[in-house]
Write a protein that binds this DNA or RNA. Structure first.
Lengths: 161, 161, 161, 161
DNA sequence: GATGAATGAGATTTCATTCAT
DNA sequence: AATGAATGAAATCTCATTCAT
């Protein structure tokens, strides 16, 4: 059943946000949706599969913001808004970015996304390095959710000068 | 003997950089310096103590760059240079930043450091939010060591305009 | 399965009688019933839980002898008989009594039992201190199973004079 | 140095009383007298040797009370007084009695003492089984220091009737 | 006599995964 | 789809003991 899968992905998402990927326990995920932990393996053969599914869903949540039709202002404002309404998404991304360093399956998901993101940013900016600057700042701003929106706005102002 | 302690800290540093804090194994640390894993506990009662010592030493390596007497240009150039010569330091910082979210002992080390860093940046910049912008960008740039120096330079140019 | 639990409790009982609570090894308990030692934790999350279950079962074996409806003669004869047929029970009790000094969970099991025992003895004896005398003697007689029944009989004779 | 030995024995005595033989740590004993734990092995090659020395000293403290020249009244009064002034001695005895079950070296110390004790009691009492009764009650009374003196007095009264 | 470093055996506990039902 | 029992590999930490200094 695909509803169960969705439940498990959401529970895993929340637990990763709360305890990190390293602190994720399949038992806790199963318990959160009220099934036995061995049943979880019916839906996701392995823990890595579950994490991949979580990454996949989280990446999808970002996609609208990364479309090529936006202006830079729209793009950064959208991200700043997302940081306020969905801080969990950025917490998760930090986890996944770090995890990607050592897990090729996750890297295979994250890498292309960053490439697409960089490509659409490059189209909006005069200097290609500014695409990397935006990406670095957005990722780094996730460390401090409180100041993140202001930081993105400041970057936008600098880039438009 | 304090030499042994230093050896263990360095081995743990390398292993965290290679496998992450989550992937750190006390046995591996002990093996790396050629002692029994139980002897490690003679020097560091607990694994957390060892990680703290690693964090402490890494933070010390940054301190010279964070002194209040520098200009912004010097500061960012120093960091860019460090990213090239000591990329391990930035990998470690990403691990520690994430770890600090859930480990108060590490948070107690990292927090004050960021505060000091922010304070000295604020003294060098017209708008306080730019201090946060620099910190976010430096932290985020660690994800992509290849483009990091160029990104820092681009940020510097924008801030000096 | 509750049969497995019962098996484990019995094996633990025997091992405590043989090697003491201090000498109890979870591995040995698991091995005695032929399962992996990690499976034991499926049935008893912690070693303390297992010991508690052993204490609980042993206390239950005494309960019939401590009922309030008996005469003192019946009571002491029953205990003397038990000392001969089930000396392991008294060995275990000595272990648990000593353990209760430092383990509040065990103390919480043993304390009320002694209180009930004292209450029913008090009802059978003219002087309340004689209840404590009986309890002390029964507990102390466990040290020497060979002379224990004769000792209890001698005490009974003195109390009936 | 024999003063150091005495210090170590006393510290071990106190720690056994506080944490039981099972909870005795040589490190704690050494720390209590302010020396390194490896130095302890200079005075007592093995932990068992230390425990034996503790047992030996404790037994000596009882010896005056067990001399053959006393009357039963004196004997029990002396023990009752000791229970009040030196409850630690009885706590220790319970530990040692239980330990003797599995440690032949301790058994070799405790056995002869009980034999001598029984012999001198037998000389003071009409029925030999009363010697065992007294011993059982004294040992059992140690469980409840609060009621112990009254219990011994009650036993004395019964035996003198 | 004393120290600190080292050892090695071991103990409990955790956890993803498998399998029979 | 689901369960519960079982597994096995591993991980941290403990502790008495030894040894060189």
């Amino acid at each position: 059943m695909t509803a169960r899968r969705a439940q498990l992905i959401e529970a895993a998402h929340d637990l990763i946000v709360a305890h990190g990927i390293a602190g994720l326990r399949t038992r806790a995920v199963a318990a959160a949706v009220g099934i036995d932990h061995s049943t979880l393996h019916h839906h996701f053969p392995t823990k890595a599969d579950l994490i991949e599914a979580v990454a996949d869903r989280a990446l999808a949540a970002f996609r609208p913001a990364e479309g090529p039709t936006q202006t830079l202002t729209e793009h950064l404002r959208h991200l700043a808004a997302l940081m306020t309404t969905r801080p969990d998404l950025f917490t998760l991304m930090r986890e996944l970015d770090l995890h990607a360093t050592r897990d090729t399956a996750i890297a295979a998901l994250m890498g292309p996304r960053d490439d697409r993101w960089r490509a659409s940013l490059t189209a909006l900016l005069p200097h290609p390095v500014h695409a990397d600057l935006v990406i670095a700042t957005v990722k780094g701003a996730g460390n401090h959710p409180a100041t993140a929106p202001a930081v993105l706005k400041a970057l936008l102002d600098l880039l438009r000068k």
